[in-house]
Simulated assay, not measured.
Amino acid sequence: MTTPSPTHTTDVAIIGAGPAGLFAAFECSMLKLGCILIDALDAVGGQCTALYPEKPIYDIPGHPAIEGGALIDALDRQIAPFDVPRLLGRRVESLEGTRGSFRLGTSNGDTIHAHAVIIAAGAGAFGPNRPPLEGLEAFERSGGVQYFVRRRADFANRDVLIAGGGDSAVDWALSLREVARSVKLVHRRDRFRAAPESLRQLDEAVARGEVEKIIGYQLHGLHGTDGQLAGVDLATLDGTVRHVACDHLLPFFGLATDLGPIAQWGLDTVRGTIPVTPSTCESSLSGIFAVGDVATYPGKLKLILQGFSEGAMAAHAIHPIVHPETALHFEYSTSKGVPTT
């Protein structure tokens, strides 16, 4: 006997449970719109949870600094009174229907019926750009080569080599110098694509001997036995090779992203993003909205705080779809309050 696939009915299906998706769930709930969160990861939080739970974020209003994991915990607590259902560890494979009546299917066989859809999928499915080095997989399995820092404590009293020239490479060099025995930062040129303040701090750390910069070199080879990393060969363009002893290699060469099935749903897309109307965040398909990094429009800034604003606009635009006969009288949260648990 075949077990029927679970079916869920809601007002708004939110695809993606990162910061933008979580706050969109809060805004929908405050407008008394039922919603459900769906994410391919096994936990809420998106990249904040999967990539940098201990990395401080400095541009969240009201928080001079807050770690990625702590931000997700706070957002999760914020929607707790509304008991928003979550379908985690599965991705949305299909979407069909029209404004007011959509049907979504997941990789786990779930069927979701919703009046509207919010896509908060960040950059879509993501994974690291891996360096083309012989024997790389064995060192990845042992943890000698890692692409994300989930716990700084894992690098305590270790010799760490960081490769890359962007914000992630510079930020983690500055952060890990506080716990690691040594930190070296290698880049092919003495020009980094990082925030000016981070570069100022890096220069100061280099001057104090807390971080060593290795300029003009690229990753060339890995050394170690039984998957345990012992060192890395670096090479210049003219073939000069330098060996660096280290316990861990952290290559930060960006993420390879893919919208996956979303790209097949008939939405207009531009370079892996979804163009939306700025005032409502509605996509080219009526009733389907996009917020956060996946959404694009003139003047768009890829900031978490902008994703929060977009979630609020999308929720208000969705209200007349779900309740066409009911006028929405906007109330500030200070007067409206939230349910108590």
Rank of each mutant, 00 (worst) to 15 (best):
A43H: 09
D59C: 01
E67V: 10
D59S: 05
Q47Y: 01
I60P: 00
D73R: 14
L51S: 08
G68M: 05
Y58C: 00
P56C: 09
E54K: 11
K55F: 02
D73H: 11
D59Y: 01
H63Q: 15
D73E: 12
A43C: 03
D73Y: 03
A65D: 07
A70C: 07
P61H: 15
G45I: 03
P56G: 06
P64E: 01
E67D: 13
K55D: 02
Y58Q: 00
I57M: 13
P56V: 02
Y52T: 05
A43F: 04
P61E: 14
A43D: 08
C48M: 11
Q47H: 04
Y52W: 06
D73C: 00
E54C: 09
C48F: 06
G46Q: 06
C48G: 01
Q47G: 00
A43K: 06
Q47I: 01
P53F: 08
A50P: 00
A65G: 03
G62W: 07
I72T: 11
G45P: 04
A50C: 01
A50E: 10
D73G: 02
G69P: 02
G68Q: 06
L51I: 08
L41T: 13
G46I: 02
G46K: 05
A70D: 15
A70G: 12
P56A: 08
I72Y: 11
D42K: 14
K55S: 06
G69I: 11
P53R: 10
G46T: 03
G68D: 03
I66L: 11
D42Q: 12
Y52D: 03
A70V: 11
K55W: 02
I66W: 12
L51Y: 08
L51R: 06
A70E: 15
A50D: 06
P61W: 14
I60H: 07
Y52K: 11
G45K: 06
I66K: 12
D42S: 12
Q47E: 04
P56T: 02
I57R: 12
I66R: 12
T49K: 06
H63Y: 15
V44L: 05
P56Y: 13
P64N: 02
L51W: 10
L71R: 13
G69F: 06
L51H: 09
H63M: 11
T49N: 09
I57P: 03
C48Q: 08
P56W: 11
A50T: 04
P56K: 09
P56N: 04
D42Y: 08
P61F: 14
G68C: 07
L41V: 00
Y52P: 01
C48V: 02
L41M: 14
I66N: 08
P61S: 15
G45N: 09
G69H: 08
G46H: 05
K55Y: 03
G69T: 10
A50G: 00
D73T: 09
I66A: 09
G62C: 07
D59F: 00
Y58V: 00
A43N: 07
L71W: 08
Q47A: 07
A65R: 09
A70K: 15
Q47S: 05
I57T: 04
E67T: 15
D42A: 13
P53D: 07
K55V: 01
H63L: 10
G46A: 06
L41D: 13
L71G: 10
V44T: 10
I60N: 07
I60G: 05
G68V: 02
E67I: 09
I57S: 10
I72A: 13
I57C: 08
I60L: 05
T49G: 07
L51M: 09
D73A: 12
G69A: 12
P53Q: 09
